[in-house]
Amino acid sequence: MTTQTQTRGTGRKTTPGASHLLNWAGKYSVYLALVALFVFNLVATDGFASTFTLQNLLFSAAPIILIAVGQTLAIGTGGIDLSVGSVMALSSATVALYLGYGEVAAIIIAVAAAALIGVFNGSLIAFARINPLITGLGLLVAVRGLAQAVSGGSRSSIPPGGVFTWIGNASFLGIPVVALFALAAAGAVALLVRRTTFGRYALFAGSNREAAFLAGTPRNITLLAIYTLSAAFAGIAGVMVSARIGASDPSFIGINLELTAIAAVVIGGTPLVGGRISILGTVAAALFLQLIDTTFVMQDINFAFAQVLKAILIIAALYLQRTRKDAR
């Protein structure tokens, strides 16, 4: 790169200091919000500063982080994966169905079944050129139905004492193993996005579809891989939740979680139009959303009121981001 500096159009009226501060706050808004809410709870919420509470928080956040990371990739390509909640249910149903072959086998089959849904979804999007919103809406309903059909739908307990009990309860150095796994997966995906051709191709597809095509990038294969990965993550998330409650519960697991995942992605700084991917932001936002719920329950705030407060918090986080976008 040559060293000439490009003079940028700086027609903003704000003083450099103020604009810099806003820019900074916008860039790190989700992290700031997470820390602020965490500190608030440490001070104001009885019983928050305990291993049990924090472990619970992480146990609950782990599956959300996983599906939100998959969702980040889908949204980064300008798409969306609405099937994740239902795929979690399918995974849970499959666990119950194949428990007879051993717990590990059941987990592998459940994740594979989930991934297969992703292959189907990805094929429709990449090759049949169907809008991901459409395929997602279809699968959202169909896969939930499939989950209820294969399992006989009802909740069935997983016998305690085995792998599932371990997944649902084990901690390493005080941190739930599922959370460590989710964070490791998020790290791996962040690496993929930053360092590999796969990550670039995903960004290109989201940033400018036609240009990506003309640059000869394998857009279709990339999309297929992304929706498969997203579904596989949802499959793992389904196993995590089943393990946590010690039961397969296809009628209830994952309901509306696709919305939570989408919210985490957007709050985390990945725009819905694609072309930018922020895995770290997504992880922070997933934790933030989980922390909001924890706060409301622990403060025993009325449900209806809690929903309004939550909406306000989310809009505030998004507003800070908007400031950043303008400042660029």
Binding site: A61, L82, I245, L259, A263, V266, L289, I315
Partner: peptide, 28 residues
């Protein structure tokens, strides 16, 4: 595991149609 109904305007925008649909799949 968090599964509370999510009803912020942000996500409502993203998937307005969803809310109606999930109601069918969730025994209320």
């Amino acid at each position: 595991m968090k599964q509370r109904r999510f009803s912020s305007p942000a996500t409502a925008l993203a998937s307005v149609a969803l809310l109606g649909l999930t109601a069918c799949t969730a025994p209320l």
